[in-house]
């Protein structure tokens, strides 16, 4: 029996504990057999976080603030973006294939951010490409840097 079951602890008899990392580790072990040294075992899963704030990066230039949100796997029409009273709200639902064949899983991205003073909310614009949502929020005229000539 010993020789027939060298991998039982990893692959067979341990019941799923509800810990996503445990399950994904088992997936790797099935896939990669006896090469654990090459496992990227703390690689993360696409499906298990329920409400997740997307990774974002922010820039400022003379005319605007620009936010870039990482939202892979969506279509532009599935993203809801709202700016109201100095707050930017973003929500989107992503569908992914689940581990069970032919079924779907989904999770949502959700985030609310306070915008700085002196922005022109009405002229904000956004675009979505290659999984990145770019939001451009123009500065109000009075907040732009102004050169002052020295006489």
């Amino acid at each position: 029996m010993k020789y027939l079951s060298p991998f039982t602890r990893r692959d067979g008899l341990v019941s799923f504990s509800g810990d996503p990392f445990r399950e994904i580790e088992r997936e790797f072990e099935k896939l990669f057999g006896s090469w654990p040294s090459l496992f990227e075992s703390n690689g993360s899963s696409l499906t298990f976080d329920s409400d997740r704030s997307p990774v974002s990066s922010w820039y400022e230039n003379d005319d605007a603030y620009v936010a870039r949100f990482e939202l892979p796997g969506l279509k532009a029409k599935d993203i809801e973006l709202e700016i109201k009273d100095g707050t930017l709200s973003l929500s989107a639902e992503r569908k992914t294939r689940s581990k069970k064949e032919k079924s779907e899983a989904s999770y949502s991205y959700r985030q609310s951010l306070s915008l700085p003073d002196g922005v022109n909310e009405a002229d904000a614009s956004a675009s979505y490409e290659d999984g990145i949502l770019a939001v451009n929020i123009p500065k109000a005229e009075k907040a732009k840097p102004r050169r002052i000539a020295i006489k």
Binding site: S56, S112, L113, D117
Partner: peptide
Amino acid sequence: MTLLNILSKEPASNE
């Protein structure tokens, strides 16, 4: 200038 106050931002998920 007010700094952007990023609410509920989780740490970068990728190391």
